[in-house]
Nucleic acid binder design. Sequence first.
DNA 1: TTTCCTGT
Length: 310
Amino acid sequence: MFHKNIIYIAQLSSVGLVGYGLGQYTSKFKENRDENSLIINGKTVRNMPGLPIFGTVSAAAPFTDSGTTKDRISQIMKYGFPSLDNVRSYDDFVLSYDRRNRVPHWVFEHITKAHIAKNDQVDRSKCDFMPDDSIHPFFKSQNSDYKGSGFDRGHMAAAGNHRIAQKHVEQTFFLTNIAPQVGEGFNRHAWNRLEKHVRKLTKVYDNVYCCTGPLYLPRKESDGKSYVKYQVIGANTVAVPTHFYKVVVGEAPDGSLDMEAYVMPNQKIPEETPVSSFMVPPETIERAAGLLFFDKLHRSKLNRINGKKL
DNA sequence: TTTCCTGT
């Protein structure tokens, strides 16, 4: 499988090279323990906080497989990283992994017409959900955590957004890109409609930038106090988010930029509910998630937020 | 169509 080609350069690089397929004991050596590290295709390219990420890449770890990987990541992350906690990059999306909750903090995609065009070479049914062995066993989710839980393994970067290559769609099935979602009425319906809406934006915008992730929102209980309460599933106690968000920016052919932001509760949603009814101010999501979206995008360049002229 | 599940 392609993920076995990944070479880990960590503190114990020789172990990382030899340790493949030897199970959980050796895999713990592959985890990079530096919170501020950035791993690009399995290579640690940055482990000093505060250094410019892409300025450091070429000096620290020259890419042997041409410069295209770096270019693609720069393109996906053009408008900034929402945070820098356990960043992982794949061929067509980038994510930050939440080791405490065993789901992503955020997943970033850059989507164009070409990425979602019909492609007979790409077959979703050939894909399998799989654990990402670049995550330390303490923090890694497994298929067994989801089995029998009653929750779907819901994609954050949607499989349907990565149809340029079979390898790309396969990588969306890494469990680092997955969170527990209510299946009936949510993942398979309302959330799927939101994903389709985002794909449709490529008809209007040349470039669509999409950030997706979970939320754990407080709820007032009968004692009048607010609590954050969420279920955990499986032996690895994977968190079941209370809500999910999407923050999307579209770049029009004339260069103008529009933003849309959505929050949906992780529950059965009535069929007739329009996608637009889940729009929220992006700042609400930033405050709730502890993230800053499109930080490098000057707000003065934004034409509209949630369809409203600024 | 795309999102998944379980049972065989």
